[in-house]
């Protein structure tokens, strides 16, 4: 038995020389001499690839800060829940008739269970000796179908979502930074017309977005208060005089100035 630094191993395994190699496939040991040491030869190439990857990864991280939405609000009915992108295909699948309603079990457990089960048991389902794709057409075709279906479901699901509008609706509001000046002459007007939707601290709510951090001019706010927004706020919510409108807009702008500090 060899010990210490002189220990010898066979090929790419821990199997010592005197053990039978019958169970170990002679894959590349048929190509004598065309191997290299793991350390440092192989690992150097591996790590160079890793370095290139790391640079790309850090660029992605720096270019796209991790998103943080607003504090979870269970009463926020306007928010459409959406899973992380790698669950989107399951999410989309459940929209189909055969995968929802009375077939919900099929859509939730049947189809994904079958797919993932087949993936787990692939070596036993595809147990022929040939390794090349054309030697096992059924397995390869099934995989390609499953892959296409997954990609297509993910794509359809993502294409329906207006990501920018989603992000705009779900902005983080700095905690405890706003003290609403309830003595402001515009506050009573805000309370009467806007508070039920936009919240008592302009933080937004079930029916309306946050009014903090908006980038709109006084005129724009005035117009929206009277005429609403396209597809969002209905027209005619604020019905006061022009002078009252001015006070209201001033109130909203004051709060925004405070928030910006």
């Amino acid at each position: 038995m060899h010990k210490g630094k002189g220990m010898k191993f066979v090929g790419d395994s821990r199997v010592s020389a005197d053990r039978t190699l019958s169970k170990i496939p002679k894959d590349y040991s048929e190509y004598p001499g065309r191997t290299e040491a793991f350390w440092p030869n192989f690992l150097l190439k591996e790590w160079l690839a890793g370095s290139v990857f790391l640079v790309g990864f850090m660029c992605l991280t720096l270019a796209h800060p991790s998103p943080l939405g607003g504090l979870a609000d269970p009463t926020n009915a306007a928010f459409i829940p959406l899973p992380d992108w790698y669950f989107l295909f399951l999410y989309e699948l459940l929209k189909y008739k055969f995968a929802s309603g009375e077939y919900i079990l099929l859509g939730m457990i049947g189809i994904p269970g079958l797919a993932f089960g087949a993936l787990l048991l692939a070596p036993f389902l595809d147990n022929g000796p040939g390794r090349r794709p054309h030697q096992r057409p059924i397995a390869v075709i099934m995989m390609l179908l499953a892959l296409t279906a997954t990609v297509w479901l993910t794509y359809t699901s993502a294409a329906h979502v207006d990501w920018e509008a989603r992000a705009a609706m779900d902005q983080p509001v700095p905690p405890n930074s706003l003290e609403i000046d309830t003595s402001h002459e515009g506050f009573a007007l805000y309370e009467a017309s806007c508070l039920s939707c936009h919240g008592d601290a302009l933080q937004g709510g079930a029916a309306g977005p946050s009014l903090v951090g908006i980038e709109r001019s006084a005129e724009e706010i005035g117009v929206i208060a009277r005429e609403g927004t396209e597809g969002g706020m209905p027209a005619g919510i604020f019905t006061g005089t022009d002078e009252e409108l001015e006070q209201l807009v001033d109130f909203i702008l004051t709060v925004n100035e405070q928030a910006a500090e």
């Binding site: 220990m7 191993f9 191997t35």
Partner: peptide
């Protein structure tokens, strides 16, 4: 020694 020799010195195929 055998522990790290096994990891460091095992041959990796060219392919």
């Amino acid at each position: 020694t055998p522990i790290w020799r096994d990891i460091a010195d095992h041959e990796v195929p060219e392919h």
